[in-house]
Nucleic acid binder design. Structure first.
Length: 189
DNA sequence: TGCCTGATGTTCT
DNA sequence: GAACATCAGGCAC
């Protein structure tokens, strides 16, 4: 198993803070876009707010698969959100990418999402639009183009804030949301 | 500045 | 048929 998949073969709530600062490299129409992950949320099957809580279905099949793949779902009739699958095959766990910071190719991202300022990527559905991620990317292996996850050294604990999650109706008390302190791209919700 | 609501499709009960 | 891991725009203050 690759280093990336070995790294991700642990509980989602352990990995979620470690993914802060990691990079995503996306290739769109031959152009490279690189962003830094600044906000994550962990979900697993013991968690009533998780898609995998009620068992494996055709929709959540990816979450129960091999770690290191992308789980893209469609929600509220208009939005995509993307998750990184963690733990082992058969365990329904994933980490929602809630916000990223543009590093390279911001112009390309604004072609897909023509807005000003941090609204480009400061929410889970927004970053999917800016990175041109949709259902066709569901199940993609993050070791390969056109979307790669590049791990970085863990951030100092003093830079990481841990809170309850947002935008959910169940299991609100679970403190599995992590974000980088003082980063302007962290979502306001 | 902050609350409220409409848009809209997929999934599961 | 209802719920939903959202967002943007409108209106009140």
């Amino acid at each position: 198993m690759s280093d990336l998949k070995t790294f991700l073969s642990r509980p989602a709530y352990e990995i979620a803070p470690l993914l802060l600062g990691a990079l995503l490299e996306r290739e769109i129409d031959g152009k490279i876009v690189r962003v830094k992950i600044v906000e994550t949320e962990a979900y697993d099957q013991t968690d009533a707010a998780s898609h995998s809580f009620s068992g494996r279905t055709p929709r959540t099949d990816i979450m129960f698969g091999e770690p290191g793949h992308l789980y893209v779902y469609f929600t509220y009739g208009m939005h995509y959100c993307c998750n990184i699958v963690t733990e082992g095959a058969g365990v329904g766990a994933a980490i929602l990418i809630r916000a990223v910071e543009p590093l390279v190719g911001e112009d390309t991202m604004r072609q897909w999402r023509p807005v000003q300022g941090t609204a480009l990527t400061n929410g889970p559905a927004k970053l999917c639009q800016a990175l041109a991620i949709d259902r066709q990317m569901n199940g993609h292996d993050l070791e390969f183009p056109p979307l790669k996850l590049l791990l970085q050294p863990a951030l100092p604990v003093s830079q990481i804030i841990q809170t309850t999650r947002v935008g959910i109706s169940k299991a609100k008390e679970v403190r599995w949301r992590f974000y980088i302190k003082d980063n302007p791209y962290v979502s306001k919700w």
